[in-house]
């Protein structure tokens, strides 16, 4: 891996006023590299620009300035023709927040087939891809069901299957768990992790849940259109003051450890992001007291 899968340099984007006069900068220069096979969480509070960042990555929105290279293709240099755009969107899939507003067909399997159908995949391969994709997310038995009868988590898994059927290299989850109940959120997160670990798909999870970010290899924190900090979840969650300045709060377990440390209790260890890690660290500190 010499070349990162996603490479941005000083990426900027501004929303135009309805009159077209004023501009509202949403991204003010983000430079980041994401390697193939990484699981990256993008954190930020509402209006921080994290969703805008996601939408730039498959050119739903066009960058105002800066450099954006995906999979070795420079998207900010010269005109992009329709074929390149299709290729890009095939490679970089996107799952949105509201499961109801991204399912097109009235039968689950036909919805999963929608993407590859658009790509013109021949029928036999289409059938195989749809079945495989439904197997991956564990929704094969619902192939003939109507989407509106499924639970939120199941709908979101169908949406993910719709992406997998296009065989993307990377999937961006734009707050895909925000509208789900805890059970559904767990289902989707497990699916996301499995896709990354077992199928080698690069994952970008845009979220404002800290616990979700803790599951990633790397966390990017975006605040006010700028990249505030990045690092492993353990590194990022150690700096509570910085996260607070971005309107974010560290997970409760990390907060306990940090508060204890502030209170003068020596707790050794780095594993601050996960609940299990925090519990172990506190237990160890208690044992060696």
């Amino acid at each position: 891996m010499t070349q990162p899968f996603i490479h941005t340099e000083n990426l900027c984007f501004s929303y135009k006023d309805s009159e077209g006069a004023g501009e509202h900068p949403a991204l003010k220069g983000i430079s980041v590299d994401i390697n193939a096979g990484e699981y990256v969480a993008v954190l930020g509070h509402n209006g921080s620009g994290k969703s805008t960042f996601a939408k730039l990555l498959n050119l739903i929105l066009e960058p105002s300035s800066g450099v954006l290279c995906i999979n070795g293709m420079n998207l900010t240099e010269g005109e992009i023709d329709d074929e390149q755009l299709m290729e890009l969107r095939r490679n970089v899939g996107m799952v949105f927040q509201n499961p109801d507003n991204q399912l097109v067909a009235t039968v689950v399997e036909e919805d999963v087939a929608f993407g590859p159908e658009n790509l013109g995949v021949p029928q036999e391969e289409l059938r195989r891809r749809v079945d495989d994709a439904l197997d991956v997310v564990g929704m094969r038995e619902y192939a003939k069901h109507e989407p509106h009868r499924l639970s939120g988590g199941q709908k979101q898994r169908v949406a993910i299957a719709g992406m997998i059927a296009m065989m993307p290299k990377c999937i961006i989850f734009d707050e895909s768990t925000a509208m789900l109940d805890p059970g559904g959120r767990r289902e989707v997160l497990d699916t996301i992790r499995m896709l990354n670990r077992e199928h080698g798909i690069t994952v970008l999870n845009i979220t404002h849940y800290m616990n979700e970010a803790a599951e990633a290899d790397r966390v990017l924190v975006i605040n006010d259109g700028l990249l505030l900090t990045q690092g492993t979840p353990n590194e990022v969650f150690s700096d509570r003051a910085l996260l607070l300045s971005a309107g974010l709060e560290v997970p409760q377990c990390s907060e306990v450890v940090l508060e204890l440390r502030e209170g003068g209790i020596a707790i050794e260890g780095e594993d601050i992001a996960s609940l299990q890690g925090c519990a172990d660290m506190i237990a160890r500190a208690y044992a060696t007291r």
Partner: peptide, 22 residues
């Protein structure tokens, strides 16, 4: 939102589309 989602899934009209259940 649906239009954006459809664009993300490479929808570009009926041209060159195949079908799962023919």
């Amino acid at each position: 939102e649906l239009a954006t989602a459809m664009e993300c899934r490479c929808y570009h009209g009926g041209e060159g589309r195949t079908q799962l259940n023919v």
